[in-house]
Design a protein around this nucleic acid. Structure first.
Lengths: 166, 166
DNA sequence: TATTGTTATACTCTATAACTATA
DNA sequence: TATAGTTATAGAGTATAACAATA
């Protein structure tokens, strides 16, 4: 009984996931031409979490380290980050934002805010918060448990909904 | 004041959007090797909405018609759809699922359900429903208003939350 | 002239595998 | 031997532009 309804829900969720690309592409169009989404991800995570090694960044990006390496190279070529030697392990490199990288990051923040302020003008803060919470939990459910260092577990959303009835 | 909080929320939402790829890739890995995500999208929408023209399908997929053309060609080569002449406009083609296409679609449903049943085992139906609703609204807010033919407008989610306090 | 759809081209993102340097 | 990172290669998805056929 409930299984049938769940199956239909799952189909609908799969459809929504496959269609979310239209949102990502719209976001991508607002990026500077020399800073594609991959580069923006590197800058954002370094800005948020501070200096880190390649392998840690790959975890946060949730992509293979070879992909991370390419994004990092692109960002480093533009002088937005430095790759410092790791005194504890000569195989490793410590990634660190440069002042130019921080400036680029500010530019990205500016563009993101402008776009979302426009697109989500009729959303409440509560709705945005809830969507963020559910997307975070979705990623955790798919095994990406690395991106929420401060929030060990995005607890049951249902409980949160009842606790915060707008 | 509130603007600062909103800006931080927007940054977080942008991060979640850029990181959702890990979920899509996991879904993609469950697909048959000769039926990539683009093909699955074509089959799914034809199954859901019935026969349609290329241009309509491109709208539903929310991609350029040139992209749609390639996905459709891939699916047609495998015998999953037919491209029938449109009696009303000889430039146009009517796309129609074949029995083999329906069988392939059933296979896709099966795999999707299995994956999501596993990954979302600790989600409530209400949480899934809410995520679907918010993602639908997000796409609408980004100008993709074409994919919800039966639900003219996904109304305020905040109102819905209070109306349905679990 | 305008529109429907196809094809050619180019770009981004991704994973796998082979490789180098270090642990 | 095992691990950190780089590079080469291949595959999927997308958009733009040029084109053919029809409206």
């Amino acid at each position: 009984m409930a299984a049938m309804a769940e199956k239909a829900q799952y189909e609908e969720l799969a459809r929504q996931l496959s269609a979310i690309g239209v949102v990502k592409r719209d976001m991508g169009r607002t990026l500077p031409s020399d800073c594609p989404a991959g580069s923006a991800g590197v800058l954002t995570l370094l800005g948020r979490h501070g200096d880190m090694r390649m392998s840690r960044l790959a975890e946060l990006l949730a992509v293979d380290i070879s992909v991370t390496s390419r994004h990092v190279a692109h960002v480093a070529e533009r002088g937005w980050i430095e790759r410092l030697p790791d005194p504890a392990d000569k195989r490793s490199r410590i990634l660190s934002l440069t002042p130019a990288g921080r400036a680029q990051l500010d530019e990205l923040y500016e563009r993101t805010t402008q776009l979302l302020t426009d697109r989500l003008s009729d959303w409440t803060g509560e709705e945005v918060r809830l969507l963020i919470q559910l997307m975070t939990r979705l990623r955790e459910s798919f095994g990406d448990c690395r991106a929420s260092p401060r929030a060990p577990q995005a607890a049951s959303v249902a409980a949160d909904i009842t606790r915060t009835p707008a």
